[in-house]
Design a protein around this nucleic acid. Structure first.
Length: 758
DNA sequence: TTAAGTTAAGTTTTT
DNA sequence: CTTAACTTAA
């Protein structure tokens, strides 16, 4: 089993005791080393797999590692703890966070939630967000957390600097709000775990005792907090094996501390260092290109990547006149390679610097009938419909999450508007209670008045769902939720392409819930929400399906493809304009260069580098030169060809839209109501009556107030005569639906409609 | 109270 | 070019 490892790899596998730094160049088989090392520990050293932990960067990498260990080891692989930093911390905190002032059913806030909360914070502190946006403060806070700087330390560091003090105050308030909502943001997961370890020796020692053998993948991208986490865990047994490549460090902007790898031997003076320099992935040409690019960076750990692989094809390079021609070329090239059987779609990847670049390729791939998958961009779980449903689940799970409650209190429309919410919030602040608890006392809030009844039915609904959550499986709960709120029904009624896409997403969510229930021995609502909060888009990549993958260079790290297209290699795009013009341009360009290195080394057999003289950025034409990184590749390694003549653009654009329409216009199951001027009315569908319906007594009250009721014939001064089909209470007014003789079905508010019974 | 309509602002990269 | 934030009509 260990015979197909080279000498260095073997050495790394067998070095099991004490700190070990493996400097693993791109494609040098580091995953193979890690998996074999785990197998070796279990099979040869008799280590209980329960004592082994492997930390990876993405869930996908974690899954892959577990699978590969599983195929090497007879049994026990499933007891190894393979996880990402964030997932590991979340799991630890779920057990012990009550020791540092949170409840164990805390929710995890994503970027959207953070921004929402920060908006609140700024309002409270009367900070003008026109000067500094929410993101500005969030970035400052995030960086502080990466460096384990807490609020007190931030105040201290600020000294007399007014601006820093202001950030400290924002940080302070932000943390208080999080605590009040029993919520953590991504960075808190790390920081709170470290805090827990510091404050509670018992917990730390428990984990130290359990996790005697630690392995960390992609070590070059760890930040200070992550390093503190590992160091604390490892400090007892010191069996810490880290694998990394300083040349592939590309997350400085996220706090990655390159010193963690450069100074590893100083932190652990008895550390062994092993270099893996033989590359098994790429052709000689590709490797030479990568090496000559990265050679332009200073301050690297010295290493020379080599391969026994054949020289291979030259690297293709071409500059196009316009960005759409670049996309067209890539599409055509992929088609051709697939047609002559050279590659499948799954063998091809298009890599670019920014997510915005994906659009042109997407358009082109649709017209060319190329199956593709875009990784990144808007996260599945960040979509409105998904967030809405998740907010319901969160509300059911953790009523202290004010953000979640406020998100869905008026979805579907319950006539609880901004004004009412603000009044309840005021009351909650005054009483020092959570928003949801204030809702439960709605009758006692004088300012709320009539809306109290609606709030009450909302609370009753949540309470009922909460009871059900204990009794029925998660998938049934979600189904119930969708039916009771009429969420999908309302989308069906909309009948637009967009609504159909949303329904598909909801179905996708339902299958994710089902999959979670299948995988997990003890599925819980909290568990599902946590899993959902911590998935990255790359995690969903599936090697078994045949599609071209499009993604940013950052997402591509750790992956490999036979055919790689590096697109948009232009100065100003890659390296980015921001890095070129930065105060620390040299440093930032070095990071971009490492990114280029990552990109080049993803390619196994063929690499195509493309760029365009002109492209549209934010609706404006931008003219870029060929990227400096391309010029760092020796010309002898490249083949160039002249640009193709410019073709008629108009035709192509039109063809794209036709194709896109055809692509999305699938038949749609469900009732389609051609209702014009539709008010988004969930009440019309499903069992929503118990939350927004009208009782029999109300009907009489309506008839009295309005002078007409359902079934009556009425006249409208513009629409003429018609029959009232429905009257729904909404806000302080009634929403009346009328089937007009000539003007079709209309919905309108009674005060404006001025209908008269005839 | 809602939704359509208008205007302003903004883009690296992500667990 | 898209998305969020505001205005206004019903």
């Amino acid at each position: 089993m260990y015979d197909n490892l080279n000498e260095k790899q073997k050495e790394a596998v067998c070095h099991t005791e004490g700190p070990l730094l493996i400097l693993a160049g791109a494609g040098s088989g580091k995953t193979r080393v890690l998996t074999h090392r785990a197998a070796y520990l279990i099979e040869e050293k008799g280590v209980n797999p329960y004592h082994i932990m492997a930390i990876t960067f993405t869930n996908k990498a974690a899954g892959e590692m577990r699978e590969r260990i599983d195929s090497l080891v007879d049994y026990g692989a499933e007891s190894i703890w393979v996880s990402t930093f964030h997932a590991a911390c979340a799991r630890i905190l779920r057990r012990y966070i009550d020791r540092i002032g949170f409840e164990t059913n805390f929710t995890i806030y994503d970027a959207d939630d953070q921004k929402q909360l920060m908006k609140d914070v700024c309002k409270r502190l009367e900070i003008d967000t026109k000067i500094h946006k929410e993101r500005y403060f969030l970035n400052a806070i995030s960086h502080a957390k990466d460096e384990l700087i807490d609020v007190a330390a931030y105040y201290q560091n600020a000294g007399a600097d007014y601006h820093q003090q202001q950030i400290a105050r924002v940080y302070d308030e932000y943390q208080k709000m999080l605590q009040k909502n029993n919520a953590l943001d991504f960075d808190d997961l790390l920081m709170k775990t470290v805090e827990l370890f510091q404050k509670d020796r018992e917990v730390l020692e428990g984990y130290q005792e359990r996790l005697r053998y630690l392995m960390v993948d992609e070590y070059q991208d760890t930040n200070t907090a992550q390093f503190a986490f590992i160091r604390m865990l490892a400090s007892k047994y010191e069996n810490l094996c880290v694998v990394g490549d300083d040349d592939q460090s590309i997350y400085k902007f996220r706090g990655a501390n390159i010193r963690n790898i450069l100074n590893f031997e100083q932190y652990f003076p008895n550390a062994a260092v092993i270099k893996l320099e033989q590359n098994y992935r790429s052709t000689q040409n590709i490797l030479d290109a990568a090496n000559s690019v990265i050679a332009n960076n200073l301050g690297r750990k010295e290493k020379a990547l080599w391969t026994e692989n054949a020289r291979g094809n030259k690297i293709f390079f071409r500059q196009f006149a316009e960005a759409y021609e670049e996309a067209e070329y890539v599409a055509r090239d992929i088609k051709e390679k697939v047609r002559n059987g050279q590659y499948g779609y799954r063998d091809c990847a298009v890599l670019y610097r920014t997510n915005a670049q994906s659009r042109l390729f997407e358009e082109r791939f649709i017209t060319s009938d190329i199956p593709y998958k875009i990784v990144g961009g808007v996260n599945f779980y960040a979509r409105k419909e998904i967030k809405d449903l998740l907010a319901y689940l969160k509300t059911i799970d953790n009523a202290r999450d004010d953000l979640a409650v406020q998100r869905i209190i008026n979805i579907p429309k319950r006539g609880i508007g901004a004004t009412t919410i603000a009044r309840v919030q005021d009351y909650a602040n005054m009483q020092g209670m959570s928003f949801y608890n204030a809702l439960r006392n709605a009758q006692e809030i004088p300012a709320v008045g009539r809306a109290a009844a609606k709030i009450e039915s909302f609370v009753t609904f949540i309470r009922a769902m909460r009871t059900k959550a204990e009794l029925i499986p998660l998938s049934d709960l979600l189904k119930e939720l969708i039916e009771q709120t009429g969420y999908v029904a309302a989308l069906e009624a909309e009948g637009t392409d967009e609504a159909r896409a949303r329904i598909e997403n909801i179905e996708e969510l339902q299958s994710k819930v089902a999959a979670y229930e299948m995988d997990e021995e003890q599925p819980t609502l909290s568990g599902f929400l946590e899993e959902v909060a911590l998935v990255a888009d790359v995690d969903s990549l599936d090697e078994n399906s045949d599609y071209v993958v499009l993604m940013t260079l950052h997402s591509a790290k750790g992956l490999e493809f036979p055919q790689v297209y590096l697109a948009g290699m232009e100065d100003g795009l890659f390296p980015s304009y921001l890095s070129i013009t930065s105060d620390q341009a040299e440093e930032e360009i070095e990071e971009e260069r490492r990114l280029a290195y990552v990109g080049i080394t993803r390619a196994m057999q063929n690499l195509s580098i493309t760029c365009a003289k002109q492209r549209m950025v934010r609706g404006e034409a931008q003219y870029n030169r060929v990227s400096r990184f391309v010029k760092e590749i020796p010309p002898a390694l490249m083949s160039q060809s002249a640009s193709e003549p410019v073709k008629m653009r108009e035709q192509k654009v039109q063809a794209f839209w036709r194709a896109k329409e055809a692509f999305h216009a699938k038949p749609f199951a469900g009732s389609y109501q051609p209702v014009s001027d539709t008010v988004f009315d969930f009440g019309a569908a499903g069992g929503a009556a118990d939350i927004s319906g009208t009782s029999g007594a109300d009907v009489e009250a309506q008839r009295g107030k309005l002078g007409y009721g359902t079934g009556d014939r009425v006249v409208h001064q513009k629409f003429g005569e018609g029959v009232v089909t429905k009257i729904a209470a909404g806000g302080r007014d009634y929403e009346v639906t009328v089937q007009f003789d000539t003007a079709g079905v209309r919905k309108m508010f009674a005060v404006f409609a001025k209908l008269k019974r005839i």
